[in-house]
């Protein structure tokens, strides 16, 4: 219970530094006939003011595709990204706001994925991180939890992944890997014991670019479990999930 005392401290750590942000607010001039200021960061909020062509505005913060700005007279409001791009900066160049997109996807280095699915009838969840060494080859580390009726499993593994067509919007991949699986019997089962085995696996999957930083992943995996009693076991698993890339 006492760990909870640490939480408010953690929150304090994340408090935004007020003074700094105010000093450095970038300024731009409106080039469209007018710019709409919304009362909140969303399309449904009312437009309560317009900024006229030629007026300078300061940009303070961003929430997705909305920007908090202030006018020369100090009125604060939210502006949509596509309208903010119709401004000139102090250099006289048109403002460009970078948003992660398809181009970043093809040049990504890291991918972090969360997936859920079914492993021989039991629920399974996976958290994995992937580092691309080249456009085609990636190194993956993964952690799996399987929750079955009689057993729960925990797996830690590594894999090498190959994507033959990295430039496709829906691209297939294959991977080879291995790791350690821990099998824990349920508390309601009396006579079973906990065991630990090594495994090797082969995966085929599809990756589809969604938008921004997100990717949809669908995969099928086959495990070969090297049992301690020399009796190898095969397990089949499918999963679906999301990945974010950086």
């Amino acid at each position: 219970m006492k760990y909870w005392l640490l939480f408010p401290l953690l929150l304090l750590f994340f408090l935004p530094p007020f003074s700094q942000a105010e000093e450095a607010a970038p300024q731009v001039a409106v080039i469209d006939p007018y710019l709409d200021m919304y009362s909140g960061p969303g399309r449904g909020y009312p437009i309560f003011r317009v900024v006229k062509e030629g007026e300078w505005i300061s940009i303070h913060k961003r929430k997705n595709r909305w920007f908090l700005i202030s006018t020369e007279s100090g009125v604060k409001g939210w502006v949509a990204k596509h309208q903010l791009e119709r401004t000139l900066n102090l250099e006289g160049e048109q403002t460009i706001i970078k948003a992660p997109g398809w181009r970043d996807f093809s040049q990504r280095n890291w991918e972090l994925a969360v997936m859920v699915g079914s492993l021989d009838g039991s629920r399974t969840m996976e958290l994995s991180g992937l580092y691309f060494m080249t456009a085609n080859l990636g190194l993956e580390a993964n952690y799996n939890v399987g929750l079955g009726r009689f057993f729960s499993t925990e797996m830690v593994g590594v894999a090498i992944q190959h994507q033959p067509f990295p430039a496709w919007r829906v691209a297939p991949y294959i991977s080879l890997g291995g790791g350690i699986m821990q099998i824990k019997p349920k508390a309601t089962l009396v006579k079973a014991e906990r065991r630990e085995d090594n495994y090797a696996n082969v995966t085929i999957g599809l990756r589809s670019y969604l938008s921004q930083r997100f990717v949809l992943r669908l995969q099928y995996k086959e495990y070969l479990l090297f049992n301690s009693d020399e009796n190898n076991e095969e397990l089949k698993e499918w999963k679906i999930g999301f990945a974010a890339f950086f």
Partner: peptide, 24 residues
Amino acid sequence: LDEFGVDTQIERREISEALIDSEN
């Protein structure tokens, strides 16, 4: 810019996206 009635004699500063605090 003068046509807009904007004072162009302002000290130049780089506009950088890093200066805009993103709160997602």
